[in-house]
Amino acid sequence: MNRLPPARLQGAAWLGAGPLFAGLDLELPVGWTCLIGPSGSGKSTVLRLLAGLPTGARFEGTVTAPDRIAYMAQADLLLPRLTVMQNVELGQRLRGVKPDRARAASLLARTGLAGLERRRPAALSGGQRQRVALARALMEDAPLVLLDEPFSALDSANRQRMQDLAVTALAGRRVLLVTHDPLEAIRLGARICLLAGGAFAEIEALPGAIPHGAQEAGFGRIYETVMARLMEAE
């Protein structure tokens, strides 16, 4: 598992004439890295640059990323005309490969969606739809997983369930989670990076296995640190 291809972003970006960030060097180890920052700080740009997606920003630097990348966004991005099963198989369908139905079915079972394979997305709850999106991301079996606030639109209980499910399902991969929620970053980050006011910094994260609980020693202190950094950036 440590033979995963590297993922790293180094450089600077500008939005129009104004600098978005400079001197950024983000190398993703195996496990969860959380990138936190206020809206407009460029954290999604970092994720999209790693993904090779268009950003609207001008970037100078180097991107090192594996060929195959799994991705989840805040919107579930399910195709309304396809069934749950077909949505999970979308990556293979887009590559023109024959979908691996057995694997899709087992991933749907793993994400708690067994029995819903033939439903359309419109017939699912918001939490279930995001589970389909997770199953679709898992289907890619990618060494690098990019998560752009995929839990933000969920209610608290569903958010925690999805976070725990994602932690289990994505173990052993390089994961970058972009979020604006300090609690989420501390809960899930083996590493926490902060992007605010054009500056990039790494913040102390809780040691040990994720997801972290709020009762763990140091949780409150790190929360205060992150909040102070976020407040002074604005």
Binding site: A51, G52, L53, P54, D67, I69, A70, Y71, A73, A75, L77, L79, L90, G91, R93, L94, R95, G96, E140
Partner: peptide, 16 residues
């Protein structure tokens, strides 16, 4: 967002 999915899958123009 949907086009992002096809870009990430490196889909060809026709599949997209």
């Amino acid at each position: 967002g949907l086009l992002d999915l096809s870009r990430l899958a490196r889909a060809g123009r026709w599949q997209e």
